[in-house]
Design a protein around this nucleic acid. Structure first.
Lengths: 222, 222
DNA sequence: CGAAAAGTTGACGACTTTCAAGTCAGGTGG
DNA sequence: CCACCTGACTTGAAAGTCGTCAACTTTTCG
């Protein structure tokens, strides 16, 4: 299959809401996010994607994008034409099942966010985000010293957990003061995983990581 | 394929969080909901399902349930063994694509809820729920006189939009006073669709209803 | 009819937003 | 090297949304 590599600058958009994409985007390096604009002028992040994800896989079967896909810091992606993916899938039912499963995990993550946004206050929301990203980054071997790269502004964090910048700032301060985590210089450091995951009511089961890839693929685990 | 029909009483559970289901559930009549329990003792509804939905389709590829599936009022469902579904799917790539697409629409609906819960206040959340269910029920020919059956308590509504019962009650009162909608005797009546969908910032695009089934299947449209 | 469930309302306090006024860090030009 | 500038981060105060507690009314159903 032909791969088109591409480097993305911070904020650069890969696919636009309302558009009809003709290719998928595999995250190779960095972070991407899905977001959508509300009528009141604000932005809501729908999900954050780590290397290994294919955030616009749904484009294979759904014509129009219901959100925009864009890079958070700088990132690298690989673009795959729908046509070529479909050619491969026609020949491999096994791969279809694998991709379908990826869609299902993506949906499970979205459901987890519905649960978090509906059931937790802003502190719990942020804690959950930190926990989820920690686990997902760790699977990809991107965690070191209990920390992982998270080059995102407080404005974007607010758009993700549904809180104002001011409130995000206060939450970060509280988590810092309580020695649960620190977000500094584009990196998130977990200081106390047990208490953090307790505050977040976090259970990684929904990520469906029964087969820990990182054990096979990465030289050094989390 | 062998179908097992089943009648469900209000609140009856079809599949439990943490369980490993061996069959799927097709909604035939009534409403079902997915929900999950939070550590603080509260419940969060993840989605509401109308006739035609297969809320636990993900069980085909994900081993453990990340939520409970249960009936809202009384309902009828058809149970399909995974094994039999998979047998059929092996013979029909077309059906695989169709089911996969259903999963993707399910994910799109979940994303829409992330957007709503993250970006709107309780009033907008409820308005959005009312709009979404209106459209989905209409597609199935279940809307008449701008109203549809919604036999759900205010407690459950609160668990759905992430608000307390008291606040749900006040929102309903406001929507009633403003003549946007009325919820009474297990039925939701839309009084002013234009203003309601405006309050809800509702756009049905994410439901991916490009081919309006109801035109072909139902004797009388909405 | 009577009990239980569901709905309704007021008062008070907690969580969160908005507005405003800063501080801090990194990058540019003198 | 330092003044300056800009975007990001911080913080206080006032106001709005929402949750909790408690009491009460209405509806449902045996």
């Amino acid at each position: 299959m032909k791969l088109v590599g591409k480097e993305l600058s911070p904020g650069q958009q890969v696919a636009l809401e309302w558009n009809e994409p003709s290719r998928c985007c595999l995250v190779v390096e960095g972070l991407l996010r899905r977001y959508s604009n509300l009528s009141n002028g604000t932005v809501q992040t729908l999900s954050i994607h780590v290397p290994g994800d294919i955030p616009d896989l749904q484009g294979l079967h759904l014509r129009t994008m219901d959100h925009t896909l864009a890079s958070i810091g700088g990132s690298k992606v690989a673009l795959l034409a729908h046509r070529e993916i479909l050619d491969v899938l026609r020949k491999s039912p096994r791969l279809v099942a694998l991709f379908w499963r990826e869609s299902l995990v993506d949906a499970a993550v979205a459901r987890a966010w519905v649960k978090v946004l509906g059931g937790h206050d802003a502190l719990g929301r942020f804690a959950h985000l930190a926990c989820e990203l920690y686990v997902r980054m760790r699977v990809m071997g991107l965690v070191s010293d209990n920390s992982y790269p998270l080059p995102i502004t407080q404005v974007h964090l607010g758009e993700t957990i549904g809180a104002s910048v001011v409130h995000v700032n206060r939450i970060l301060k509280k988590l810092r003061d309580d020695r649960l985590l620190v977000h500094k210089r584009g990196r998130l450091v977990i200081l106390n995983w047990d208490r953090l995951s307790e505050v977040a009511d976090f259970d990684p089961a929904y990520l469906n990581l029964r087969e820990p890839l990182y054990l096979d693929l990465t030289p050094a685990g989390g």
